[in-house]
Amino acid sequence: MNFVLGFTILLAFQFIGTMLSQWLHLPLPGVLTGLILLATALATGLIPLRAVEQAADALLGEMGLFFVPIGVGLVLYADLLFKNSVAIVLTILVSTLVVLCLTGKLVDQVLPNEDKKVTSHD
């Protein structure tokens, strides 16, 4: 199926999600509401996966490009960033380490024993 159809569906769900988040004062940003609605529509077969696949894969494949102009916007905050650079780097380091270890350890605890045996090879 073609790109334009898929792109239109994606935009439509972004639009609906944004409207719903605003109208219903949902605690989710509009794009997330749209994402959940689209996932539901696809999972239930309301919209066939092949209708959106081509556009979705094309966009997801170049996702990095779409944040570049926002990343360039860092120039507007140069002073603030320099003043907080140590805090920023240390927060990222410590928090990433904590998330990694706690999530790994806790999930390990809740897994049933038979899963642990079959999957533990490196």
Partner: peptide, 15 residues
């Protein structure tokens, strides 16, 4: 370019 971030985020439903 930034505009495409919206539909690209919605596309995360596919994976």
């Amino acid at each position: 370019i930034t505009f495409l971030l919206g539909p690209a985020t919605i596309a995360l439903a596919i994976p």
